[in-house]
């Protein structure tokens, strides 16, 4: 059963009268529980692909079916709901709210999901405990190390039990050791059955995934399973 199915997805931008083809009829499928790395140099279209998979952007043409729902025809509000319930983002720059503490940052998706306060509290504590930050709940992002911040971000991504964990260069702003630590977290999440999509240009990081999709000039250059 496929979780993500892209069929001839094309994305064009208009930039100063010039049309840029970021993606040209890309088709591929990701099954539930897969651990996939999307690789490619900058300008290859991998960010566009990630934005489309993450429902931040919509395709110019083609269809995108996520969890048996056709996402490509949804409006802005519906996409926001899909992002809230189906997708957990982890960003290179962590993207935590600077003035909010760890607890509040993780709780935020639950607020937009319309979940009651007691349940929010329970689920948030659970998520923060699972990434080993139960004792850092009242700390603000600037009171934590990079690794801890990224773990807060992972907890935030997981708190709504999404179908996909979408990580965009999750180790880009971390030193090698902390980066490995975060990759360990992903490894563990994958082993528990979570679907993870890793967007990166680093071979070392991509090697953690069990399938590597390479993008070049808006096309899939290679798609290989590892191990």
């Amino acid at each position: 059963m496929s979780l993500i199915h892209l069929e001839k997805v094309t994305r064009r931008y208009q930039m100063g009268g010039e049309t840029i083809h970021a993606l040209r009829e890309v088709s591929f499928t990701i099954a539930r529980g897969e651990y996939v790395a999307i690789m490619g140099p900058s300008g290859s279209g991998k960010s566009t692909l990630m934005n489309i998979i993450g429902c931040l952007d919509t395709a110019t043409s083609g269809t995108y079916v996520l969890n048996d729902v056709n996402v490509s025809e949804m409006d802005d509000n519906q996409l926001a709901e899909v992002r809230n319930k189906e997708i957990g983002f982890v960003f290179q720059t962590f993207n935590l709210l600077p003035r909010a503490n760890a607890f509040h940052n993780v709780e935020l998706p639950l607020i937009y999901a319309g979940i009651s306060a007691e349940e929010r509290r329970r689920v948030t504590v659970e998520a923060l405990t699972s990434v080993g930050l139960a004792d850092r709940m009242t700390h603000k992002p600037n009171e934590m190390s990079g690794g801890q911040r990224q773990r807060v971000a992972v907890a935030r991504a997981l708190v709504n039990h999404p179908s996909i964990l979408l990580a965009d260069e999750p180790t880009g702003n971390l030193d090698t050791k902390t980066g490995e630590e975060i990759m360990g977290v992903f490894e563990e999440l994958s082993r528990q059955g979570n679907t993870i999509i890793l967007v990166t240009h680093e071979e070392d990081i991509a090697r953690h995934a069990r399938r590597i999709v390479r993008i070049r000039d808006g096309l899939i250059a290679s798609d290989e399973a590892r191990r």
């Binding site: 539930r32 529980g33 639950l110 607020i111 937009y112 999901a113 319309g114 979940i115 009651s116 306060a117 349940e119 689920v123 659970e126 998520a127 699972s130 990434v131 997981l158 709504n160 039990h161 999404p162 179908s163 563990e188 999440l189 528990q192 059955g193 979570n194 679907t195």
Partner: peptide, 19 residues
């Protein structure tokens, strides 16, 4: 760690509590 994604969702939603 967290529950796997395949686990059925237990979260309940309250439309009034959102606002």
């Amino acid at each position: 760690m967290t529950a796997p994604a395949t686990q059925p969702r237990v979260v309940r939603r309250y439309p009034g509590s959102l606002l």
